[in-house]
Design a protein around this nucleic acid. Structure first.
Length: 363
DNA sequence: GACACGTGGAG
DNA sequence: TCTCCAAGTGT
């Protein structure tokens, strides 16, 4: 690897650009506000950074507001019930984030006097906080000179230096180059500026190089092929798994639910009873896995859902029954509170499909 | 280091 | 319909 090339890129234009173009985000203290003495709330910075992991700004907004409305302070979240946190997170995905969020709040309350550490090392030791988030909180909340590297920064740096190494192998080199750019003054604004730049100008496709503060010092742009970087490794195709799900509605409208194991896919979330999800699912034997015998009717067509590493097709069976005890490990979720249950999106799709097909009121 | 881990929007 | 992706972390 070429270690000799010094970073000669002037980063002052990036801060100037950020002063003029910073995105207005609910959890952000803008460059103008900071100059008036307003400092970010570390709790808000932390909550937003966890939610933003692999998740779009648009998706995070409503969840961020809902969490702060319900748990205004870190101590409130530390004292919350884990299932309430899981339910409030439902729909946002990557549910281990919610479990670690709650765990992190408890650790801070119990062992750190309810305050966040200001250093990367201190933050890195906490649940759910990895290298990116530790650097982001240290830089954004405490304005410490940490090198913040997310997907945006990787893209910007890969283009600035025209790095040919494919991701993820290029990550160490990109981090090293990013560190050479990080200024000692306003490191938090620099980090946010780099991420804003990646989100709005240095975009994955069709970057708006004419508007870029690095125009003139970007190697990829000078070679007239900015969107060739970063180079990506080959991606593997997604296999398909199949199974069946059972939506059982009691006469009063309650739905039979159970809890998934705390770890793994959709860990700790609620679900309707299902078969295992496998590549060799046998549809003819599906009813053997039903929670009890009933007049099960199959809805038309499966529910399709795409996870990170596989596609899922679930046949949906529905039944209506009178009073019946919930089997071990199951419970009847009242119709009135179904919306607030810790049901992941795939399960909401299953229940909605049953309601609009097999459980439709008969004419 | 490789893989598991969700979801919804854009092109 | 399909691919890519969005402020990554844990194991």
């Amino acid at each position: 690897m070429d270690q000799t090339a010094p970073a000669t890129i002037d980063t002052r234009p990036l801060l100037d650009w950020y002063d003029r173009n910073a995105r207005k985000l609910p959890w952000r203290v803008g460059p103008g506000d900071r100059k008036l003495g307003v400092v970010p709330d570390p709790y808000h910075v932390w909550l937003s950074e966890i939610m933003l992991q692999q998740t779009t700004v648009a998706a995070v907004g409503p969840y961020f507001h809902a969490f702060l409305r319900r748990w205004p302070e870190l101590a409130d979240l530390a004292a919350a019930k884990t299932d309430d946190v899981m339910a409030a997170w439902a729909g946002l995905g990557y549910y281990s984030r919610a479990r670690n969020l709650k765990k992190c709040a408890e650790v801070l309350a119990a062992e750190h006097g309810g305050k966040f550490p200001e250093t990367e090392a201190g933050l890195l030791s906490l649940p759910g906080i990895g290298p990116y988030t530790a650097a982001a909180i240290s830089a954004i909340a405490f304005d410490r000179p940490a090198t913040v590297v997310d997907g945006n920064v990787e893209r910007v740096v890969a283009r600035l230096f025209a790095i040919d190494t494919p991701l993820p192998d290029a990550k160490p080199e990109l981090k090293r180059l990013a560190a050479t750019l990080t200024p000692s003054t306003r490191p938090g604004d620099f980090a946010q500026g780099m991420m804003d730049l990646g989100a709005t100008i240095c975009t994955p496709t069709r970057p708006a190089c004419a508007l870029c503060p690095f125009l003139g010092s970007c190697k990829a742009q000078s070679e007239d092929q900015p969107d060739r970087f970063p180079v990506k490794g080959a991606k593997t195709p997604k296999p398909t798994r199949k199974g069946a799900a059972f939506v059982c509605r009691r006469k009063d409208g309650a739905i039979l639910l159970t809890r998934r194991p705390p770890k793994g896919l959709l860990g700790g979330m609620a679900e309707v009873p299902t078969t295992a999800w496998t590549a060799d699912f046998d549809p003819d034997g599906a009813l053997d896995a039903a929670p009890f015998s009933a007049n099960w009717r199959q809805a038309t067509g499966p529910v399709r859902h795409v996870f990170t590493h596989f596609r899922l097709e679930l046949d949906v069976y529905a039944a209506e029954i009178g009073k019946a005890p919930a089997p071990d490990g199951h419970w009847w979720e009242p119709a009135a509170t179904l919306d607030e249950a810790a049901l992941p999106t795939v399960m909401r799709k299953v229940i909605a499909h049953a309601f609009e097909d097999a459980l439709k009121p008969k004419r």
